[in-house]
């Protein structure tokens, strides 16, 4: 099945794909030995140091780490927005060099086109891939219903709240039916209540889209609530410290935040992060 291809007019976001032979044996995303070096005024800065990880099809992975650990850089590189880099990135078996329509991205800021209505923002992607206005609008209307913004289909972004704008941004990223959805702290700019609602919405949405999701955040709670697997990154240089499988039952919601199994996992995460923090502190002290 082609990325962005739609078999029938009615949007069936719930996996129209049957796994092909290649899908079964190869992960959706393969990152091997990824290193990224930035030139700064103070010389070269190793932002990301030999990071390797795979993401199987349909998995929801969260990357957590302190600000400046290079987690967003890793995500941008998978998106094809960051060059040059060392190492290899394969998405659906193909090396990444530039943005691809089968990879969708949601940024920390919604970055909606301010001159377009909600519907036309979401229809933008399908239009760019050669769909007729009618087809693109049909896709947009289905997604508008899914993210619960039917009343706002013809509204312009500047009239929407931050949470609603971000829902439009998610719908827009899904309009091209991406195989991989990258999310860069998409709820980071929202207030705590809206963020919890958005997390629950995303968990619900995830049951309908079967895209592989890589979600970057600095919030450990958010990572554990959402993810199948959490990658913990350290700062300076960015490295993967530990991977944790989140074996909490689904469907989940923010309600699990107080369950013992959840708290045990969170303790594991915090131990790793605290140990790394101490190590980094001692190192800087000695240096």
């Amino acid at each position: 099945m082609q990325p962005g291809h739609r078999s029938n007019a009615k949007l069936s976001l719930a996996i129209p794909q049957t796994a092909t032979a290649t899908e079964r044996c190869q992960p959706a995303i393969q990152v091997s030995n990824l290193s990224i070096v930035f030139d700064t005024h103070h010389g070269q800065l190793i932002a990301v140091d030999r990071v390797s990880f795979d993401v199987p099809h349909g998995e929801f992975v969260c990357i957590v780490g302190p600000s400046g650990c290079g987690k967003s850089t890793v995500l941008n590189t998978i998106a094809g927005l960051e060059e040059p880099f060392e190492g290899e990135i394969l998405v659906e078996g193909l090396p990444v060099h530039r943005p691809r329509p089968d990879v969708g991205m949601v940024f920390q800021q919604p970055h909606l086109f301010p001159w377009k209505s909600v519907r036309r923002n979401i229809a933008h992607g399908p239009r760019m891939l050669g769909k007729s206005a009618q087809q693109a609008n049909a896709i947009a209307d289905d997604l508008i219903a899914i993210v619960g913004l039917k009343r706002f289909a013809d509204a312009f972004p500047n009239t929407l709240s931050g949470g609603m704008q971000q829902r439009v941004a998610i719908a827009r990223a899904l309009a091209n039916q991406p195989r991989v959805l990258l999310m860069d702290e998409p709820f980071g700019a929202l207030d705590a209540q809206t963020r919890a609602v958005m997390q629950d919405n995303l968990l619900e949405l995830r049951n309908r889209i079967k895209a592989t999701i890589v979600f970057v955040t600095h919030d450990i709670d958010e990572a554990i609530v959402l993810a199948d697997r959490v990658l913990i990154m350290s700062a300076g240089p960015g490295r993967i410290l530990r991977q944790l499988n989140v074996e909490l039952p689904r469907p989940r919601s923010n309600a699990i935040l107080l369950e013992p199994a959840y708290l045990a996992l969170k303790k594991d995460c915090l131990d790793v992060i605290r140990a790394e923090g101490l190590r980094a502190f001692r190192q800087s002290d000695e240096a």
């Binding site: 991205m105 086109f113 992607g125 827009r172 091209n176």
Partner: peptide, 24 residues
């Protein structure tokens, strides 16, 4: 730049990028 990146991720070709995103 965020608008440009968002447009890139949605598969906006160069011509459309200039005529629509940059112009507006």
């Amino acid at each position: 730049r965020g608008l440009i990146r968002a447009a890139l991720m949605l598969g906006t070709p160069r011509r459309q990028m200039l005529q629509e995103i940059i112009m507006l």
